[in-house]
Amino acid sequence: MFEAKMLQSSVLKKIIESLKDLFSDANFDCSSSGITLQDMDSSHVALCYLKLRSDEEGFEDYRCDRNITLGVNLVLMSKILKCAGNDDVITLRAEDEPNILTFIFDSKNGERVSKYDIKLMEIDSELLGIPDTEYSCVVKMPSHEFQRICSNLSQLGDSVTVDCHKEGVDFKVAGEQGSGAIKLKQNTTVDKEEDQVSVELNEAVTQSFALKFLCAFTKATSLSDTVSLSLTQDTPIVVEYPIAQHGYLRFYLAPKIEE
């Protein structure tokens, strides 16, 4: 038996909304330690990795008697989650050898209980081994700032060059009709931590990435006030959104290189 009671359905709604356009079908791997999801986009350029820990406060109850994999169409899951109020408590339930995933939405005032079942899918997905590595540069910034940068630069071109150096981080785009550059300086003196821009630098990195994917990742902006970008030369960028009281959502994007 698997049963996970999440205090805020809005968290799961935001997660699925941020994933469903790039990653249509995904396996939720459930174990006693929590729920993980790894999925690649159809072009095999980007990867997402979600971790929701069972011992975090976001789960009121969590039970998973044996490891199970729940193959779900995320577009369908998004439709089901739209039936839940943002303040509803949501319970996910499945049997040990499941072919159905049940969603139960309890309204805050206890006056309405909704139950939806969806059929599970057999998803033959490949898992990639992502090593724990130290990155040359880790930039932490307000998530809305990163969203704005990606959105603004995507008006002019397809690729952004991210240049991390000791003074800060530069984002540059060069298209057929024009070019743009946004320079973010390190700023750790502002009062609120979530408004700070910090750069941990071991080695300078300059690398280009497809804006289409970075813009898609920023659909997760509402999950977190901050986002971190981890870079090492000639490896994928990691864009991480912490999820308070649950864990994190990470996106990995392979770089673009000069031909």
Binding site: H44, V45, E126, G129, A210, A254, E258, E259
Partner: peptide, 14 residues
């Protein structure tokens, strides 16, 4: 001209 790398190129499949 830039070309897009695949994520397979960086991480091992298992």
């Amino acid at each position: 001209e830039m070309s897009q790398c695949s994520i397979y190129f960086y991480y091992e499949c298992f």
